[in-house]
Structures are given as structure tokens and as C-alpha cells.
Design a binder for these strands. Structure first.
Lengths: 336, 336
DNA sequence: GTACTGGATTTAGACGATTCAATTCGTGGT
DNA sequence: ACCACGAATTGAATCGTCTAAATCCAGTAC
């Protein structure tokens, strides 16, 4: 009934447990005939390795934790995709955790992962200065920040969010907009504040631009829609003529609200999102968006982690920064 | 450097490892003064339990595997949400795995989970008759099918998909549609074929209905959009006047294609989706959809699993079936 | 002073896989 | 016929935690 252990396999094959283990781990040192006998025994008994025992003995596990802010956001699934593809090559498993932008959930996941002695953790943290993170590192679990630049002793993979904000800002200002809304949140999240800083800088440089800020708790479609309704209800004279949203889910919700309210995009309201998820291209009005190389982000993060795990001692933390691209589509382009 | 073990904690507190373990597991049998001393030691050393060792000793782990077809589909994230909430109450962790409707990936995840000796597996399988599944069960890992009815010796939680198909079919036929497209895939997936069977039955009962079938590999926005473009390109006289799509992602893509092609919804094309994800309500034209109680599905599946894990021997497999609801919104309703 | 009680603590195996030093065995060289 | 060598295999220790049984000890009753 209970899953057979290596011991039963050995007994049935008439060899010692050491030999079975050798068949599993270094088959070439086992005589072909013996090897065959052991493999038959394994198959007959339906033996399955016990990962917990391996892990305990080896002192380290073969799983990597990945904590994202929102699994339902394609941006993060793309990251997961990238991370998993590389993990696979390293004979490693990814444990995907969803913090839902909630520090408590995030903490719970960190606890669990640390108890599982994961090889390391890739995380888009709620707060990148969380002392928990450095504590974990000092206790021996490598941490790589994803989509967030690290300053101190951590590896990180990120995209220049200020530049992203600037790209969006310049684009909208050059198109003639003078009342622009920035929508995102919570503002305490570095990504959000960086993007905000970027567009703010361009607005100041240009001068005469009225930039308004709207904060949301979570960046999802529903919230975007809500803010959209709110803006649509304003009189046209005081309503922003363009909106830059800190992610595409917000932008999609916002776009839907415009459509429901009968405002034309981009004529009445130009929209630029962030992340360039597949939905963005496929939206009712194809969405302009600041593209981030999500899958590459995930892959690189995993790469840094594996590097750190293998090099162990003489590893130097690195901060990789990618450049975002502005993808212009109909939602902000009058010329089409 | 290395994480301290219970042994170091014991040494520092001047007690035996057994006492430390007792503080961790049955604190009440330890004298308050000793308990305090141990707890101080734990904190000072930054001790973190080694889950692998606990697991090995206990013979069973504290994690449950959840394999879904598409993490990016909110329907499945809702299921995960439900499963996790209950898992939390049982001091259990959920490992979320994404099969991406790919049997190979699914198999890989199954292997990993079995090696980890997970408490059990919740899965929306690609093929519910996969012999792997029953093999795993016979080797001792309980499996609960999610969103899929089991016949043989398995627990399952599902929604009556035939009924769902009938609800959509009746609704569209009563509204006068006589050329209807069914879109989904792969048709080998039971959910899809059941929904198809449902609407087919209503069409046959009504008579004089031309029901056309379109198959896709994966049910995502992109694919929906593609089929939408394809239908939009047909001459109006032969084009279906209504479409029933096997999930909301497809429906959303389809809807976008209509909008781009200048077809009005529902006047030129009525649309009914499936799952009633949040996006559906928030779409440019709010989407009619067959609602499934996703979170409840996840919770119930976890409930069945926990039941089976605890009862162990005298457990009888159960097949829970929920009823879907048709939510009518603008995308199929002329009267609004 | 002895025997007993009950609470507090320790001790001594497991659990399953891995690894490495030790052993066995067959073969070839001399 | 004997030794040496290498290939194949074994045996035992180990990882960190848990638990049942054993031990210790202070206090109490007689």
C-alpha cells in the first residue's frame, strides 16, 4: 500500500540499497545485468523517489520559490514562464506563489518557502526594503528581486521604470496633451513610484502640464474601470485628455469604462498602459503600452539565482536592468 | 552560516533536542521557564524548522498539488483561491502548477508532485481517463478531479457542463437565432465536448438550427480573436448570428474581433461565453456567460481531499456536481 | 527514612536516500 | 600457485525532526 522505498527495491532485486542508489544516480558504475535487474524491480514495485529524503540528505532542495504580486496578470505568468523554462534545464522545480499584493500573504509564503529550504526565492516584493528579505538572505536563502532594482546586497532583475514613465510622458506631451492622469498604486510600491517619477519629470521639463495622480490599492481591471468611470463623469473641460496607467490591467478596465461612457479613444481620451501583455494588443482599441520583456525578466532572474547557488561563496550580487520600449497603438495615436 | 538545527537550539538553551521539539509541537508539556529559554534560543539563532526532515519523519508532507490548465485564466485563479483558503485552515500549503493544456507538462508536474509525496493532488486534467492518474492513486496519492466529473474510483468536483451548454443554447434559440457557432477546443477535452453536446441537444430539439463547430487548440484570447476575424470575414447571409464560446477568454477575443470588424454586438452577432470571469462583466459590451462557482469548486475539491486524507481507510469517493447559471448581459440581449 | 507519585526532561531509535570507505570477487601477470 | 589490481558491490553513517519509552527529581505520605 504505502509507496515502496529503496530498501524494498533492493530486496526484490537481491542487491543492497547502495546499489539501487547507484543505479539511480550513477548508473554507469553498475554492471549492466545488475542495473537491469534493479530497474525491473523499480518498475515492478512502482517505486518513486522520496524527494524529502533526498533533500534532507543533500542538505538542499531542488525547488525555487517564485512569489508574484498577481498570478492572474499575464505579465507575471510570462515571468513565471521564463523562470520555469530555465529551471527545467537545471533540474529544478518552481513553486509559484501569489501574494496578491498583500504583505501578510507574502510573509506567509516566505515562511513556508524558508521552511522548505528552497534553493532560493525570486520575488516581486510588496516592499523591496522589507527587512525579512535581508534576514532570509543572511540565514542562507538567496533572494533575487524581480521587476525591482535592488540597492544593497541582493541580485535583481528589473526594467528602468523611470525611463518607462518618461517614454509614456514624452509621447503624450508631444501629442499635445496638457491634462494627463497617472493611475496606479499603491504609491509605496517602487515600480509605481518610479513610473510616476518618470512621467512627472517629463511634465516638469515640458512645463504647463497638469498631471493628476490617482491611487488604487490593487492594479486590476476592476479598479481601472472604477477610475475610468470617475474620470468619465467629469466635465470635459476639466477632464484629463490622456491617461497613463501603471499596468495594462488597469488600462484595459479604464478603456472599457471609456467605451461604456461613450468617450472615444484616443480622440476624447488617449490611453497608455504598461507591460504590453497580449490582451493589450488584442483590446477593442489596441492599447499603447510600455513593453517590458517579461519572459526574459523571469529567465534572467533564474539565471542569477542558479549562478549564486552554484558559485556559492565567491558570488557577487548583480543588478541587471533592462530597457523598456514604448509600443504605440491606436489608443494614443490620432494618425491612424 | 548554515541554518541552525534543533540541535544547536537545544545546546544554546541547555536542554535536549527532545525538549526543543516539545516546545515546538506540544509547548504545554514543557515547564514555562524552560519553554521561554528555548524560545529565546530559537529567536537568537534564527532557527527555522526543516520541513524536509519533518516530512520524512512524519511520512507525509503538508503540501497539496494543484494542476490547472491555464494559470492566466481567472477562472483557474479563482479555483486556486478557493483551494488555498481551505488549505490554510488545514495548515497545508498549495503548490500551484500550470499545465498549459499540455499533457507533457502535466505529466512532468505529476512526477514532481509524487516525488514530493504531496498529501494529494487537485487537477483539471487534460484527459480524465489518463491511466497515470489511477496509477498514482493506487500508489497512494489521492487525486481529486476539478471541473471534471470522475466515473471510476475518484473524487471529483464539477459543474454540469451539458446543462451549461443547454442553457446557452436555449437562450440563443429562444432569441431567434438559427445559425449559431460553437467555439472551443480541443474537442477531446470533456468539458468542451459536454458543453458542445448540451447546445447540440437543444439545437436538435428545436429543429431547423444550423449549428457550426469551430475547434481551437488552446482557449485563450488570441485564439478567440482569430476565429472572430474568420467569422467576420464571411458574408452576412451565411455568417452565424450568434456564437457560444467554451470559455470567456475566447469570448473576449471574439468580441474584440467583432468590434474591430465593425460588427455590432449583439445586433449583428450575439455572444455567450463560459465561466463568468470578472473580465466578462467588465468587457466593452458586458458579456453573457454561463457562470461556474469557481472559488466554491476549489474549496470543495480541497474539502474532499482533506476528508480523504484524514479518513484514509474508510473513505468513499464522491462526485460533487454543481449547477451552472446563465448570466444574461448585453452581449446577447436585444432588450437592453 | 522509604516508597510512591506525577511532572519535566532525556534518550534512543526511526524515516529514506546518499555517499564513501571497506570488502568481495574474478582475472591477468609472473 | 600466488599476488595484485580493478571493477562491482556492500555496509554504515549521516541529514533534522519527532515520539514513545525511560529516567530523573522534588515533594508528599506513611
Amino acid at each position: 500500500m504505502a509507496t515502496p522505498s529503496i530498501k524494498e527495491v533492493a530486496h526484490r532485486a537481491g542487491v543492497s540499497v547502495g546499489t539501487v542508489s547507484n543505479v539511480l544516480n550513477r548508473p554507469w558504475i553498475v554492471a549492466p545485468a545488475t542495473r537491469q535487474r534493479v530497474q525491473d524491480s523499480i518498475r515492478a514495485l512502482g517505486f518513486v523517489r522520496n524527494e524529502a529524503a533526498r533533500h534532507l540528505r543533500a542538505g538542499k532542495s531542488r525547488t525555487v520559490g517564485l512569489i508574484v504580486l498577481d498570478v492572474a496578470n499575464p505579465f507575471f505568468t510570462d515571468i513565471a514562464e521564463g523562470a520555469e523554462s530555465l529551471a527545467y534545464e537545471h533540474d529544478t522545480v518552481v513553486m509559484l506563489c501569489n501574494s496578491k499584493t498583500d504583505p501578510v500573504r507574502e510573509g506567509h509564503h516566505l515562511d513556508q518557502l524558508e521552511q522548505q529550504r528552497v534553493l532560493g526565492i525570486l520575488i516581486t516584493p510588496f516592499d523591496s526594503n522589507d527587512p525579512r528579505l535581508t534576514a532570509m538572505v543572511s540565514r542562507g536563502t538567496p533572494v533575487v528581486l524581480v521587476d525591482r532594482a535592488a540597492d544593497r546586497g541582493l541580485c535583481s532583475v528589473s526594467v528602468d521604470d523611470q525611463l518607462g514613465g518618461r517614454l509614456a510622458g514624452n509621447h503624450l506631451i508631444e501629442a499635445g496633451h496638457r491634462r494627463i492622469a497617472f493611475i496606479g498604486g499603491p504609491f509605496t510600491m517602487q515600480q509605481v513610484s518610479d513610473r510616476m517619477a518618470g512621467i512627472t519629470a517629463t511634465a516638469e521639463e515640458a512645463g504647463g502640464v497638469d498631471l493628476q495622480y490617482y491611487e488604487v490599492d490593487v492594479m486590476g481591471v476592476i479598479e481601472g474601470r472604477k477610475i475610468g468611470e470617475q474620470l468619465a463623469a467629469l466635465p470635459a473641460r476639466s477632464r484629463p485628455t490622456a491617461a497613463f496607467l501603471a499596468n495594462d490591467l488597469l488600462a484595459l478596465g479604464f478603456l472599457q469604462a471609456m467605451s461604456v461612457a461613450g468617450l472615444r479613444v484616443p480622440r476624447d481620451m488617449a490611453i497608455v498602459g504598461y507591460d504590453d501583455i497580449d490582451f493589450a494588443r488584442a483590446a477593442a482599441v489596441p492599447l499603447s503600452s510600455v513593453r517590458q520583456p517579461a519572459e526574459l525578466l523571469g529567465r534572467s532572474a533564474m539565471e542569477l539565482l542558479q549562478e549564486e547557488v552554484q558559485a556559492a561563496d565567491q558570488h557577487r550580487h548583480r543588478q541587471v536592468i533592462f530597457q523598456p520600449d514604448l509600443i504605440i497603438r491606436e489608443s494614443s495615436d490620432y494618425t491612424r
